[in-house]
Amino acid sequence: MGSEKREPIKNPRIWIILGILLAMITPWYFPDSFGEILVYGVPLWAVIIILSSLLLSAYLSYVLKYHWMLEEDEEEAEQKGAK
C-alpha cells in the first residue's frame, strides 16, 4: 500500500458502489410473486435482501481495510520507534 494517504470520502467509486448496494437492500424492485416463493421458509425477496446485506457488509470491510489510510503508517512507525 505504501505511504499513500487514502480517505474513503474522496473516492467517488466507493460511493457509487455503496449507492448501488443501498438500492439493493431496499425492497422496491421485487415482483409480488417473490413473496410467495419460499426458500426454507423465507420469502425469496427477503433472501435477496439478506444476500445483498451480506454483500454490503463485505464491501464495507474491504473499504475499511484498504481505502482508509490516514494515520496508520505514521502510527506504526511511531510504535516501532517506541519499542
Binding site: L18, I25, L56, S57, L60, V63, L64
Partner: peptide, 11 residues
C-alpha cells in the same frame, strides 16, 4: 440492514 448503514455513515 439498518444496523449496517451505521457503519456506512461512519465512513
Amino acid at each position: 440492514p439498518f444496523f449496517i448503514t451505521i457503519i456506512m455513515a461512519y465512513l
